[in-house]
Computed example of a mutant assay.
Amino acid sequence: MTQRVELATVMDRLAVDGLITEYAVTVDDGDWEAYRELFTPDGHADYRSAGGIEGDAAQVAEWLTQTMERFPMRQHLIVNRRVRFGPLEHDTGDTAQVRADYVNPMRFAGHDGDSSAPDFVCGGRYEFTLLRTDNGWRLREVVVHEKWRQASRTRQEPAAT
């Protein structure tokens, strides 16, 4: 590999990492317009394993708008990112596959407890398919593979003795 190719690969990795981070931030902040802009025109997402829907970016953004109202506090942590670049029409580096694990603590709306612990936490793995476009890297597909979830138990009064 030449230095030029190595530098281009590093720059692509940074751009891909930035896009994945932007994805997490737009969901956590509820910026659904920015969420849609992260996708290619034919981009879609599949949240079925987490009880959601599959559809194009606009459909999924609309579903997220309604669903995430229940969780005003959310914080995606996307880690262990594995990036693989691939060819598109015989030009290497125009596509990327990213597999990354996530943990997502959330708080239900109307939570009136004094605990700072989240009410709901889920985790699993994302599969992102990215495409290099004239506007930079964009998401072509997002697939969520939820592996676990945990809801906090309601606090119970101690039993009378």
Score class of each variant (00 low, 15 high):
residue 104 N to G: 10
residue 154 T to H: 14
residue 159 A to D: 00
residue 50 A to V: 13
residue 34 A to R: 15
residue 37 E to Q: 11
residue 62 E to Q: 09
residue 133 T to D: 05
residue 157 E to K: 14
residue 2 T to K: 02
residue 106 M to N: 06
residue 137 W to G: 01
residue 28 D to C: 08
residue 130 L to I: 07
residue 6 E to H: 10
residue 92 T to R: 12
residue 96 A to E: 07
residue 31 D to G: 08
residue 45 A to M: 10
residue 72 P to Y: 15
residue 5 V to S: 13
residue 78 I to D: 11
residue 38 L to S: 05
residue 57 A to Q: 07
residue 18 G to Y: 05
residue 69 E to S: 06
residue 89 E to K: 08
residue 53 I to M: 09
residue 107 R to V: 15
residue 116 S to Q: 14
residue 138 R to G: 01
residue 17 D to N: 15
residue 9 T to G: 06
residue 88 L to V: 11
residue 110 G to N: 07
residue 152 S to C: 03
residue 53 I to F: 08
residue 57 A to T: 02
residue 121 V to A: 01
residue 150 Q to W: 14
residue 147 K to Q: 07
residue 27 V to C: 09
residue 42 D to Q: 08
residue 86 G to H: 11
residue 145 H to K: 08
residue 14 L to C: 00
residue 124 G to S: 02
residue 46 D to Q: 06
residue 88 L to R: 01
residue 16 V to P: 01
residue 28 D to M: 12
residue 113 G to L: 05
residue 146 E to P: 05
residue 33 E to H: 07
residue 62 E to Y: 00
residue 70 R to I: 04
residue 55 G to K: 02
residue 110 G to D: 12
residue 62 E to I: 00
residue 70 R to D: 06
residue 127 E to I: 01
residue 152 S to R: 11
residue 106 M to A: 13
residue 41 P to R: 05
residue 54 E to A: 06
residue 37 E to K: 11
residue 62 E to T: 05
residue 69 E to A: 13
residue 57 A to M: 03
residue 68 M to H: 00
residue 84 R to Q: 12
residue 105 P to F: 13
residue 120 F to W: 14
residue 76 H to Y: 08
residue 12 D to E: 02
residue 116 S to P: 05
residue 139 L to H: 06
residue 51 G to H: 02
residue 118 P to G: 05
residue 36 R to N: 04
residue 84 R to T: 15
residue 54 E to T: 14
residue 115 S to R: 10
residue 72 P to H: 15
residue 53 I to Q: 08
residue 119 D to S: 07
residue 17 D to L: 13
residue 21 T to A: 07
residue 20 I to K: 00
residue 47 Y to G: 10
residue 66 Q to W: 06
residue 11 M to Y: 14
residue 109 A to D: 13
residue 112 D to H: 07
residue 158 P to R: 05
residue 104 N to I: 02
residue 78 I to M: 11
residue 24 A to H: 08
residue 42 D to F: 04
residue 157 E to Q: 14
residue 69 E to I: 06
residue 108 F to A: 13
residue 139 L to G: 07
residue 70 R to S: 12
residue 6 E to L: 15
residue 155 R to M: 11
residue 70 R to P: 00
residue 159 A to S: 07
residue 89 E to G: 12
residue 132 R to Y: 06
residue 61 A to W: 02
residue 100 A to K: 09
residue 107 R to D: 12
residue 131 L to Q: 08
residue 26 T to A: 11
residue 56 D to R: 06
residue 151 A to H: 10
residue 102 Y to E: 03
residue 74 R to G: 05
residue 133 T to S: 09
residue 113 G to Q: 09
residue 23 Y to T: 02
residue 132 R to C: 04
residue 160 A to G: 10
residue 45 A to C: 09
residue 130 L to T: 02
residue 11 M to K: 11
residue 105 P to R: 05
residue 21 T to R: 07
residue 81 R to F: 01
residue 57 A to L: 02
residue 3 Q to D: 15
residue 10 V to L: 15
residue 82 R to D: 03
